[in-house]
Simulated scan of single mutants.
Amino acid sequence: MRIQHKPLLIAGALALTLAASGCTTVDTPSAAGGPSDQASPVAAALTVNVEARALVPAKILDAGELKIASDPTYPPFEYFDTDNKTMIGWDVDMGNAIAAVLGLKAVHVPATFDTILPGLTSHKYDLGMSAFSVTPERAKAVDFVPYLDSGTGLAITPGNPHKLAMDSSSLCGYGVAAQKGSTQSMDVLPKLSKGCTDAGKKAINIQNFPTQTDANLALTSGRVNAVMADSVSLAYQGKLAEGRFELADGPDYEPQLTGTALDKGSDLLPAIQAATKLVAESPAMAQINARWGMPASTAITVDKIVMK
């Protein structure tokens, strides 16, 4: 998703894989849901920072809002609440917090993952917050403001019957799913599959799906042997799916920064950098992480928020 990264569960047939987790439950969300601008309790406790607000372009100030695009199929980062139209999750809370510091209203717009970055360059959205991995290729088209550090994980059915792990020798010849447009689908899986063929083994049977939900359903229905996505999301999604899949043992694969995406050269970049720093240095960051079960290992130092 994203990177790597990116989880989730949803609609129709997928309703069978969803279950209550923590203080929220996931039902049968639909990507057709409308924009959500519901503020989180965390954001409500933040105050406007005058210096950061002064960096906001006049056009955004006049509109009074930030249009934030996310793919709501990726818990715990973003997914639909039980009303099937209100987006909730880590990215939603973080977006609300950033907007609050700037004295703006966050308007969360559902979008399919692979359309978000093009939507930024066409100025359809102001920000993309959907567990985007910060990669050199993506950085050619958009600017990033990092906020987490995470890596790719592998989801398998309980007990890991095929003994799969995040390395090419383990995955050769097996079916592995990923979300279309994710780092896993474009970079990680092709790289690992090449390792297989270079060693004279069968290539990985890579299967890309429109949403993370579809990829997860392919695993739980037996159509693939594993799913690759952000390790944090996969672990969370496995719990939501009542243990129908779980994260394979082992370290994350090639941890990368994850962050907010903006159109290349956007005048909004300095304001988002400033606001992200302020949130990261405030108690709000710990509250958001705790609310969505984000492990301490994902934290980044404030100096990484402004990319060189």
Rank of each mutant, 00 (worst) to 15 (best):
A139I: 02
T157G: 08
H123M: 12
H123T: 13
S122A: 14
A155D: 07
N160L: 06
A141E: 13
I156Q: 03
D143W: 03
G159K: 03
P158E: 01
S130K: 00
T157P: 09
S122R: 13
L154E: 03
M129F: 11
A141I: 15
N160D: 11
A139N: 08
T157V: 15
E137V: 13
S130M: 02
K140H: 12
S133C: 10
G153A: 03
G153I: 02
H123P: 01
L148S: 14
P136R: 03
S133T: 12
L148A: 15
G153Q: 01
T157Y: 01
L148C: 09
F132Y: 10
G151Y: 01
S122E: 13
P146Q: 01
P161A: 11
G151C: 00
P136V: 05
A155K: 03
G128E: 03
V142F: 02
F144K: 03
V142H: 00
F144E: 06
G153C: 00
F132M: 07
S122W: 00
S150C: 10
V134M: 07
L127A: 09
S122C: 01
V145W: 05
S130E: 08
P158N: 05
E137A: 15
D143S: 11
T135D: 12
V145L: 06
E137R: 10
P158Q: 05
L148D: 14
D126Q: 07
T152F: 06
P146F: 00
D126E: 10
N160H: 02
P136M: 08
D143G: 06
A131E: 12
G159A: 07
A131L: 04
T135V: 12
R138W: 04
K140V: 12
V142G: 06
A141R: 00
Y147E: 11
A155W: 02
E137F: 09
M129V: 11
F144M: 06
F132P: 10
V142W: 02
V142K: 00
E137H: 10
L127Y: 01
P158M: 06
Y125D: 08
M129C: 09
H123S: 15
S133Q: 11
M129H: 07
S122P: 05
N160T: 09
P136G: 06
Y147N: 15
P136E: 05
